[in-house]
Amino acid sequence: MNIFFQQVLNGLTLGSVYSLVALGLTLVYGILHIPNFAHGAFYMVGAYISFYLAGSFGLNFWLAMLCSAAAVAVLAMLSERLIFHPLRNAPALHDMIAAIGLLLFLEAVVQAIWGADFHRLPAPYTQILRFADLTAPAQRILIIVAAFILMIGLQIFLRRTTTGSTIVAMAQNREGAALVGIDPVKVSLLTFAISGALAAVAATLFAPINLIFPAMGHLVILKAFVIIILGGMGSIPGAIVGGMIIGFAEAFGAFYISPAYKDIIAFALLVIILSLRPQGLFPSEVR
């Protein structure tokens, strides 16, 4: 029972991190139809900023996470203004090339500052929580709870507030949104800011049980793409459910099949689900 519970916990932990990353990716895709490969670099930069603030300035974990989210939000807005906005009338391929360029650039910058070594962010809570005969490390519970609070918060923001609705409106009908007076520039900036902040929070939450290194975003972003393809490009529930599916598949696959195949499982699942449901799980939730 305890072993099974551990896998559920691992699945939820991984799923939470993946969902947060995929949410940012799907939001940007829904608005601008850009596959933002640089999102993996936002994730990586988020982890480094938290690591730097906590390590060099002794900042508290939560404060470091907050500052990192703000910094990456600004970085994401800058990349929208300086890179993606000027390309809005160019063929889609240009956006993709620019996004890969940005990914490589940010990795090079981080490597120049902090080197190529592995780092680790000290865990803020090292306790082991016990419920009856089940045990759970506090950091994992923290990841899950924080991720769920953020996902619910994001849903409320998008569905219930006027500012949030502008994002959904623009994703559903760009011209319709312009005709009611929604400013597409503001919406794009806001979407990139949220997307960047989510990536930084996900990276910071995950960093204490994971390693920090310049290429840490690669596998995460590849999986986030698997998730949003599975969930339906631009779909918010799709990103959450897709993230959980991949998280659980990895956790259970690693334990019951082999840890060596952990990363292959996500992609195998993509092939299987897309051959059964080529439109994804939630094809038209947002658009």
């Binding site: 009908n173 011209e175 005709l179």
Partner: peptide, 23 residues
């Protein structure tokens, strides 16, 4: 009020109307 309506299809009727008053 554009041709083809260009509504926000998966939002509620009321949310569509309220967004009409966005400015």
């Amino acid at each position: 009020c554009p041709e083809g309506r260009k509504l926000f299809a998966s939002m509620s009727v009321e949310r569509n109307l309220m967004l009409g008053g966005y400015v």
